[in-house]
Nucleic acid binder design. Structure first.
Lengths: 269, 269
DNA sequence: CAGTGGTCTAGACCACACT
DNA sequence: GTGTGGTCTAGACCACTGC
């Protein structure tokens, strides 16, 4: 029957849900957290464990309410937050879906560089060129960013993105070796679509949020060559750490952006 | 008695609120929008009109529910969104407050530049120096950004922010002349606190959101001099348009940020 | 048509702050 | 204690999707 986990206090002996029963038990919990937060945590676990995969629907609110023995409203509030965090997408009349980077809508969610004239949609897809892809040992710096130890195996990728034939972005990526075991330059080159979508389907790694550190820099000789600019041209240095569920860092990415035809866009609120 | 505006369909002749009454009337509305959105709009109007000023409390959820003749839950959902947009701040047990840039917490909400070591809080306040403050006619570019016509009066301010004695930010600001009529260099220099807080208290202009366009550039001779760097040093160019309520642009700000000791931080989600 | 998410209500009780 | 926001429930009905 109900083999699903259920919040601690809700699973104790009181099947009745007359007004205030659940609330009454909350005060017994030492480390108090609202019921809907606990439900959110349970749903998060299921997302994490892959019970529902990116693009699939999760059970309906009523089903989840029955599973967790809470009201639909409580499940709703839990899903509201997951939806606000872009972990899940609601579609009226259809259901709630596990968010994925494969959807057109979410293609460039983490890329804030836009062409100066017109929006990113009209620009056409970026032309991607893998420059390099090799396994090596994590430097202290890379290890710290990825939560590894120095010397742990990592994968390093260098690539260039061009728009309308103009190389615009030079990126170096570091990925933890273990989760990305089978990744090769060939695999990357052959795949047409967002890199994060490939990570989802091939390696079960879904990027959920990221932090970026931005600076203005000059390129070194090789960087300048790859981007086709002089070494005196100022470029945007964008260092990104991307996280999966549980705030686990899974990618370090250092990008150099040309800002003569594009700009980094940020909305503050 | 109730002299307050009330949503159109809720004010029509049905004082009973048995299950579904209000909903039944929604379908009669051609341009349908949920009740709580309409309530949100009404609260927004009151914020905009200055019925409740920054830092003050707004009426309790129960009071607003009574005023608008809806349930507390509906008011709650409206305020939830206003809170998510940082227009309002909830404090359990105390009330809901109109957000203000004067609070310590919100001091640097729009300034994403952080010291490389340690966080912005430990850095101490920026040392501000007003370089220039003059009235002039809007150029085409400034007029477009501020939603004015070329030649309309605008106020231009140039200032430098230094941290620990090191000039780090050079900013040029353009403000529409009419709303900021009494603003002078003296007023700016004498005021100790966030500039946006001064705008609130002195001019009733509250900045609600902003868009930033970021590029890497080299400074011109004067900019380099004011920041104490060479003209070959790459700097972050941050162009910000800040908006009040109703998406009305009220400030154009062009900042040059040094990124040798600081960095621009951005969280993606 | 049934099923899904979305809105609305009413009422209870909890956690917190002030008095 | 009183009043505020915060949580939870139960039940109704609306809007949308697809069978």
């Amino acid at each position: 029957m109900a083999t699903h986990p259920v919040p601690a206090y809700a699973s104790s002996a009181n099947p009745t849900f007359g007004s205030g029963d659940a609330m009454g038990m909350q005060s017994l919990t030492p480390a108090f957290s609202p019921l809907y937060q606990q439900i959110k945590g349970l749903i998060l676990q299921s997302l994490q464990s892959g019970e529902w995969k990116p693009g699939e629907t999760i059970p309906s609110e009523m089903d989840l309410a029955a599973r967790f023995r809470v009201s639909q409203g409580t499940v709703r509030k839990a899903i509201d937050e997951l939806s606000a965090e872009n972990l899940v997408v609601r579609r009226q009349g259809k259901g709630t879906f596990v968010a994925t980077h494969a959807e057109q809508q979410m293609q460039y969610r983490f890329l804030k560089l836009q062409p100066d004239n017109g929006d990113a949609q009209n620009e056409g897809p970026a032309e991607r060129t893998i420059i390099d892809c090799k396994r090596l040992r994590a430097s202290a710096e890379v290890a710290r960013a990825l939560g590894l130890r120095s010397g742990d195996p990592v994968l390093q990728v260098r690539r260039v993105l061009a728009f309308a034939g103009v190389p615009t972005i030079l990126e170096d990526l570091w990925l933890p070796g273990t989760p990305f075991k089978g990744l090769t330059a060939e695999r990357l080159s052959d795949y047409h679509g967002p890199m994060y979508a490939l990570f989802e389907t091939e390696f079960g790694v879904r990027m959920v949020r990221a932090d970026e550190t931005i600076r203005a820099v000059n390129p070194d000789a090789e960087q300048a060559r790859l981007l086709g600019v002089g070494i005196a041209v100022p470029l945007l240095s964008v260092e990104r750490v991307a996280y999966t569920y549980n705030d686990t860092p899974m990618e370090l990415r250092r990008g150099l952006y040309r800002t003569d035809t594009h700009h980094y866009r940020n909305a503050l609120s």
